[in-house]
Amino acid sequence: MGFLDKEFTDGNIVIAKAEDLFNWARLSSLWQVSFGLACCAIEMMATSASHYDFDRFGVIPRPSPRHADFIIISGTVTLKMATRIKRLYEQMPDPKYIISMGSCSNCGGPYWEHGYHVLKGIDRVIPVDVYVPGCPPRPEALLEGLIKLQEKIRNESMIKKSA
């Protein structure tokens, strides 16, 4: 439920938990690192274009990882690129989230059997929060992945450390 669904009683005062406030602020303006690897990146660009707008969820693409909240790994991760992705991930400030988009970054995708240079899933290198399946996933599927990420953030607790 939205944070602002509560009624305003005495003037402009709303009483809620601090956790809810922080979680609501975090999930409503998730900024992503503009990072696209392969075919899924084109669907990500189509998602941020005007037909399936990403901006209405508060998602703005930022060029530098230090300004960003989350990263969408869209496309095949190769062994050469995996070390660089790890470095990008370490450059992002906390709290940070990862969406693994597409079959290639979930588990190696169509290249799982004979790909000698393909990393079979980005979760061998960095911890993933949401997996979006598809090859490539439709923009609606990516939006659902984003909403699942928002639900995950909504249920986060300030005291308990996340896994």
Partner: peptide
């Protein structure tokens, strides 16, 4: 990668290495 020392991949007798820089290569 420039430091790939496991051979020449498209030869017919190429074998995959087990690990590369700490990452597991086969599925």
């Amino acid at each position: 990668p420039y430091d790939w020392d496991a051979g020449y991949p498209l030869r017919k007798d190429y074998e995959n290495p087990e690990f590369y820089q700490g990452m597991k290569v086969p599925y």
